[in-house]
Write a protein that binds this DNA or RNA. Structure first.
Lengths: 138, 138
DNA sequence: TATTATATTGTAATCATTACAAAGAAAAAA
DNA sequence: TTTTTTCTTTGTAATGATTACAATATAATA
């Protein structure tokens, strides 16, 4: 759980303009562990920040994503998802309940001969299947 | 290079109705190694099959994808890409030239403790960076 | 506080994808 | 082969996520 104060300091350090919207969006992203979509963030914050516009959410997420403060995921078509954790880790999406789980993985061990002389800047790993929760309900 | 004849037999074996469009789309997908988008397939085949509609391409690709005859990729936002090779392999996308390279990778070695008791049906690995061709041009 | 630079907002535009219904083609039956 | 049935193709319109843009509002700075 990060407080608004901690988030403020983080942004200040990086010379990112502090706005109410940015802090709220970041707060939500860090504390929700759901890898939310823009839609989810919008619905969740509308009550607290009634003026909030989706464009702002897109702007903010894209901006922070470029600065590597958050990470955008592409797990399924149609919807971008966002993650407050930028360390490399894998994602698992349950096809039944739709939930996304994080898991640790050693990306350095992922190497490919054919990519010698390539500059690799980003490694992504995701799995799909059925989570233990859904399996136990069958 | 697969011929139309070979493709016909493949579809017949699986009881998939043979149509001119399906064969042409599959032929293109198998022989182009570019992981094309729907747009690319459409532009490439329009001359040969003037009646071809994008809806047909979507229908065909989604259908064959469900049957595991081809594979759909999500490497970047916005556009679905398709791959005639369904064996597990990784994809590398060059941020400079946009080209997508295949590479072999041992997916079985990818395991995560936290996913014990999960049923994993699909593993995806993709990298981003700059390919050797683009690097040598700098 | 006044000024300047940047962010937010709402609306309209864009672009990939899907829904749908009519027309056409392939497979099966006669 | 011809007829019938079933499935596919097509074009158009609808959908839904995302972006462009210009006016307004807010944060940082002097």
């Amino acid at each position: 759980m990060k407080t608004l104060n901690e988030l403020s300091n983080e942004l200040k350090k990086k010379n990112i303009r502090l706005t109410h919207q940015r802090l709220k969006i970041l707060e939500y992203l860090y504390n929700a562990k759901t890898h939310p979509t823009v839609e989810e963030i919008y619905s969740a914050l509308k009550k607290e920040v009634p003026s909030l516009s989706k464009t702002t959410i897109y702007n903010t997420l894209n901006y922070l994503s470029e600065l590597n403060i958050i990470k955008s995921l592409i797990i399924d078509e149609n919807e971008a998802r966002f993650d407050g954790v930028t360390d490399n880790h894998g994602h698992f999406k349950c096809s039944k309940c739709g939930k996304i789980y994080d898991f640790d993985i050693n990306m350095d061990a992922l190497a490919a001969d054919r990519l010698d002389n390539f500059e690799i800047n980003e490694k992504t790993v995701y799995f799909k299947g059925i989570c233990s929760g859904c399996l136990s309900k069958i």
